[in-house]
Design a protein around this nucleic acid. Sequence first.
DNA 1: TTATACCCGACTATAATAGTCGTATATAGT
DNA 2: ACTATATACGACTATTATAGTCGGGTATAA
Lengths: 131, 131
Amino acid sequence: MLKLTRKLEYALIALRHMQTKGKLLSTTKEISDIYAIPQELLAKTLQQMARLEYIDAVQGPHGGYRIHSTMLEISLTKFIEDLEGPMGMVDCSVTSDCIQLNNCNIRQPINRINDNIRSIFSRINLSDITH
Amino acid sequence: MLKLTRKLEYALIALRHMQTKGKLLSTTKEISDIYAIPQELLAKTLQQMARLEYIDAVQGPHGGYRIHSTMLEISLTKFIEDLEGPMGMVDCSVTSDCIQLNNCNIRQPINRINDNIRSIFSRINLSDITH
DNA sequence: TTATACCCGACTATAATAGTCGTATATAGT
DNA sequence: ACTATATACGACTATTATAGTCGGGTATAA
Ligand code: SF4
Ligand code: SF4
């Protein structure tokens, strides 16, 4: 119920770590060691963030990642959905293939709550979490 | 991410349905038919809610369930946790066996957000959803 | 040319959720 | 008493989502 995935936590931990290092590069191994994160899993996540341009990748020896400057202004909503796909409290706030959809008596009230949560997450910036 | 379980949805649908019927009884079959909910699953959920005294059960033919009056003042937080156990965005807001716990750099900011969400859910009453 | 570190997709394992089944108990109506 | 209806309950299976692993690749500094 209402849980962040492990992947998102790892991503945030990594981002915050990189943030503290400014323009210096951080390697996957370095981060996975410090925070006891499975290296291969973190690697995939960092690669995904590189693709999304949340971070910049530098290949080769002495390579690594550093935070991409514009990342700071990203909302938590966008971050979560970029990494994990659409988020919503119920199916019908994302797709429209719920069997109950037509005669559902809680759709509206639930989606009102969903919008609330969403707008809270939208007002939170990644930089609020990573400092 | 951030999803209500199906069980909770079914529970809310059922509660709202019962709410509209006032003191009249509703049977599992009636509700599962109207909203296309798997009957056995709904049955279990209604039984659980009866145990929790969210609803009153009347056994035998012409039996069924009706809403328990005090239910109206229950918060969404309590409701969710009564039915599904403790809720939290991250493990450490519930237990303390996370490997990262000691050197985790996002624990505080995340738990601050978690507290926000929690307090929103606490201010929402079940009656806000079921009318 | 070698070692380091990113890149990528496919794979497996584990855990959470969703749904089913069998059996028992209560009770109204006959 | 008997029967039909409806709740009670636990164990079971199925399905899906999350978590984690593996194998083979590319870029590049030394
Ligand atoms: S239509 Fe109702 S049951 Fe279906 S996803 Fe929306 S809220 Fe849930
Ligand atoms: S300690 Fe950090 S990694 Fe562990 S659950 Fe809390 S926030 Fe997540």
